[in-house]
Structures are given as C-alpha cells and as structure tokens.
Design a protein around this nucleic acid. Sequence first.
DNA 1: CGCGACGTTGATTTGCCTCAACGATTGTGG
DNA 2: CCACAATCGTTGAGGCAAATCAACGTCGCG
Lengths: 193, 193
Amino acid sequence: MNNPLIADMLKHVKLTPAEIDLVTACWTEKILGKGDYLLRNGDICRTDNFVLAGALKAFYINGDTGKEEILYFAIDLWWATDIDSFRKQQSSIYNIQALVTTRLLQINHISFEEMLKQVPALERYFRIILEGYTASLQRRIILNKVYDAEQRYVDFLARYPQLAAQVPLYLIASYLDMSAEFLSRIRKKQDIS
Amino acid sequence: MNNPLIADMLKHVKLTPAEIDLVTACWTEKILGKGDYLLRNGDICRTDNFVLAGALKAFYINGDTGKEEILYFAIDLWWATDIDSFRKQQSSIYNIQALVTTRLLQINHISFEEMLKQVPALERYFRIILEGYTASLQRRIILNKVYDAEQRYVDFLARYPQLAAQVPLYLIASYLDMSAEFLSRIRKKQDIS
DNA sequence: CGCGACGTTGATTTGCCTCAACGATTGTGG
DNA sequence: CCACAATCGTTGAGGCAAATCAACGTCGCG
C-alpha cells in the first residue's frame, strides 16, 4: 500500500481489500506545473482533489481592487476542492492554482457519487474529514476576532510551520487578513526581541 | 410525520419506516428557558442538538476583554453543537446559550455513534449537512475580507432576514465583526438614503 | 545582464474602536 | 400599578491598528 489517500481513509474507516481496489481505481493522478490552475472562477469544479505532494492556493478575486484574497492553502495530504461548486456542479467563485509543481489524485463528480454508492463507508470518512475542517474554519473565524495581526501570525507559525516554510509572505499575509507591508513590520519588530 | 428532524433527513437520504422509528427513538426533546446554557466553555459537549423552535447564540469569551464574540446563531431547524468537542468528547472553548425559550432535539454521543452504526445512511446525511455548512463558513471568511462593515450588514439582512428580526443588534454586530456603536451609525446613515 | 517576483521601509490616511454618557423600553418586585 | 433597574440602542469625542501609496532594495532565473 503506497497510496496516501487510501492510507488516510484507513485511519478513519475500515475497508476490505476489494473495496480498496475499487476505490483506488476511481482516482487518477495529475500533475500541475507551477502557476497552473486547478480551478478558475466561473468554471465548475469538476473533480475532488487530494494533494499528494506540492502546494496550492485557493483564492477569491476582489471585484473592487482586483486583488487575490487567500481562502486556504493545500499541501501534501490535504484536499483542494471548491466543495460547493463540486457538490452542486455549479460555477465556482474561487480559483485554485499551483504554487509549485504539484501531484494530485482526482475523481470526477459522477465517479465520486458512484464510489460512495459502492463503498458507503466512505460517507463516514468524508463526514469525519468535514467535521475536522469545520472545526478549523470556526477557530479561524474566532481567532480573527480575538487576535490582533501579530498574534495571528505567531499562531500561524506555530500551527502550520510547513506552510510558513514554503508559501511567500505576501500570500500568508492575505490568508491572515493583513497587508503584506504590515506583516513585514511585524517580522521586523520580532527580530529585535 | 411531524418530526422536523426526520423531515430534514428525508430531504437528503432515504430511510425505511423501521429506520425512521429507530432514529426517532434516539432523540429526546428538551426545553431551554431564556438565558439557559446548552454548553459552557470548559465543559464537554455531550449532545448533538437540533433546534426545533427558538434561538441560540454560540460564542467565545475573549480572554483579554471578557467580551462575547459570536460564532453563530441557531434558530428553527438548524444545528447548535460544538462539533469538535462533541466528536472528541473533549472540553469546549465555546458557550451556547438560549436567547429565547428554545425547544431542542438531543442525542448523546454514544447513542449518536450507535445510531450511525444502525442507520449508515445518516453518515451521508451528516456529510451533506457539513458540506453546506463548510461552504457557508468559507463564504463568511471571504466576505469578511472583501466587504466593509456596511456591506457585511446589508448582506446579512438579505441572507438571514429571520435572524435579523429576532436577534438584538449588538449580537449581530459581534457576529459581523464590528462594534455595536459602529453598526448603529451604519443604520443611521441608511435611514437617510 | 535585465526583468519580474518578492520583501522592506517611510509617510500618510482611514475605517473602525473605545470610552463615556444618555434615551428608550421592558419587565419586575415591592 | 408604579418605581426602578436592566437591557438595548444611540450619539459624540478622541484615538489607534492597520491600510494605502510610493519608492526602493534584492534575489533568482530566463
């Protein structure tokens, strides 16, 4: 077993060898070059995507300023899908783009539904994944209320050191709801102490 | 069939009459008076809660200022549970309190797991519910980046008119990440135009 | 080498907060 | 049934965290 997605599923649900084969066959590998788009706003998110290796950014384009607002990053062993667009097969308001060369596993919407029908245990798997993600989104909303810019940055460094290491600062700033300039000043201040 | 929870489940999954009976039996009704707590921070969220009628607020207490920061509201036919505390049966950082007299359906954690084992279709139901909630949390994060305070309030009024009608303004202000005073000024300004 | 992507720095501005005080309602106990 | 206290919303004055704008280094890469 060298499929990281199956490994992740097995952390949360039991699958028979036959089910593992069936699930494995549903997914296909794809490689994105740096700068390639996985999803553009206005398009339908046609696949559910699991990152094997690399880094992606999901962002919203601010209609007034034209600037990117980072919704999330996705690196190894995490998901990068516009859930709402994928589930309804409606056009998306987000963009997903590769920050570096990135390997993915993909499944299209029809296969996804069929896979869930064949292997109902995966309903449980995705429920559990979503529970964890929901909790992290709620925490992010609260931290944005309670913490100031510096505290958010410190918390980010502690919580996501791998992300901090491979994502440019101006994108981290956007994720953390502050300007790149202000993040720079925070970092300068911390140098001294 | 006069159980709103079962009705909601049937919108998303099929259940046999036997399953409906089984599920129905798992939940018990509870009534909270105005001001009663469903959950206090530090306690474990022992039940999953579905609101039949009434209104609740979920909030975080800011350690520095001592003020409540609204995480969400829950009114008729919506959920009010600290997902993270419930799933791990660990202590919660949030509080949930009744704004008015509120009727709930509740299920404890052991029964919840047992119910899912007996009726696997509910794994799908909760997955679908969480997908929708995840999408709304992501949208909330993006709107907080892109919209200014007035735009957030206008959007809130359009999106949740029922909430706007029954929740005091100072709590709406907290939910929308602005001070009660500033929301008051926004409303005054809108009177004129 | 030259260009684009990224980070930094300074000067200035601003959206929103904080604090404090004051109506307007509501409900509640004497 | 009224007095009085909460609770909620509003208003004014002053202040600050962070944004914006502009300019300038610096590094990696075609």
